[in-house]
Amino acid sequence: MSENGDRIAPGKGLLDGLAVTFKTMTRRSTTQQYPDVEPDLPPRSRGVIALLEENCTVCMLCARECPDWCIYIDSHKEEVVVPGAARARQRNVLDKFDIDFSLCMYCGICIEVCPFDALHWTPEFEYAETDVLSLLHDKDRLGDWMRTVPPPPAHDVLGEPSKEEATAARKAAGPGAATAAKTARPAGVRATPPTSDPGSPSAPPASAKEPER
């Protein structure tokens, strides 16, 4: 308040204190009337974890990385006969996928490590229970949360393209055009689905190109 160690007028601090509180009183309060009015949460809020069962390959990465060990997975193998293939393929089938939210600390590591986008954050947070055991959400309940997963945000038009896109564009344009494809890309490219790239012989796998759902 005082510059260069100047003595301020006596009582100025007292008056300043009064002024601050009075000014705050005249302003609107920042209180959110939560149970009456739903909070306006950002779409990426960490409320609860949702499971998209079809995407899960039972790789167990999430269960292993979980710092709290609060993810419980059981599975069995199934033979899938693929027409045209030499022999039947083996596939993991999920039997149990439980997350114990009484242990979960919402670090989001499981979601980060999931290679197939089977786990998602949703901003839903009203799942308090009167019994702590009820906080163990099974795979049906986790799958049910998928309804509340918001659509992913649009890509940043000024951002760098993903590695897969850049490689595809370079291959399409031929040698020597890599830098041009990287920098002088039109803004609309990102908005269109990359699968619409016509005639690209080495199109990247579909799973990596599927941010929309």
Partner: peptide, 10 residues
């Protein structure tokens, strides 16, 4: 009420 509003509450 006054105390609440002075502290940005309701």
């Amino acid at each position: 009420k006054v105390m609440a509003h002075m502290q940005g509450r309701v």
